[in-house]
Computed example of a mutant assay.
Amino acid sequence: MRFNSSIFQIDATPRRADGEYMAHARISCNRDGEARQDIYVSGDLAGFDMREDAIRFATDWAMEWLERRYG
């Protein structure tokens, strides 16, 4: 799942490990038509049984991260 705005994108696609979906987030930006650049890649945030829970957790985490830094 990707959250898109005019500047920031959140990729919250979980990875599968040891029977769990590991939530993590890649935050990137695209400014002035330049190629997309990663500005932050989290480590594993938490493990979930359901893929959708991992996506929701990582997306919420990334949106809070962006709000604290660029609010």
Rank of each mutant, 00 (worst) to 15 (best):
M22N: 10
E34H: 12
S6M: 12
T13N: 05
Q9Y: 09
E52W: 06
W65N: 00
R36C: 09
M1S: 13
C29T: 12
Y70W: 15
A23Q: 00
Y40C: 10
A12R: 01
D49Q: 09
A58I: 04
T13M: 02
E52C: 06
G19W: 03
T59G: 09
R16D: 14
G47I: 02
I7A: 14
L45F: 03
Y40V: 11
R16T: 13
A62D: 02
M22K: 11
I10G: 04
D60N: 14
I39G: 00
R36A: 11
D18R: 05
D32H: 13
Y40S: 09
F8K: 04
T59E: 08
Q37T: 06
L66S: 01
I55A: 05
I7C: 11
R51S: 07
R68S: 12
S42H: 01
E64W: 10
D60M: 09
R15P: 07
E67L: 15
R15G: 12
L45M: 00
E67M: 13
D44L: 08
S6P: 09
S6N: 14
A54Y: 02
I10E: 05
E20A: 15
M1G: 08
T59L: 08
N30M: 08
V41L: 13
G33R: 06
T59I: 07
D53I: 01
S42R: 03
S5K: 07
A17K: 11
E64Y: 12
N4D: 13
G19L: 04
S28K: 03
E20I: 11
N4K: 11
G33M: 03
G19F: 00
F3S: 03
F48M: 00
M63F: 12
Q37N: 11
R51N: 04
Y21I: 04
V41D: 08
S42I: 03
R51M: 08
L66N: 02
D53V: 03
T59Y: 07
R51Q: 07
A17S: 15
D18W: 08
D49A: 10
G43M: 07
R31K: 13
Q37V: 07
D53Q: 07
R36S: 13
Y21Q: 07
R26I: 12
R56E: 06
M22F: 06
M1V: 11
D60Y: 03
A62E: 02
E52R: 06
D11R: 01
Y70G: 10
M22T: 05
H24T: 08
R69D: 04
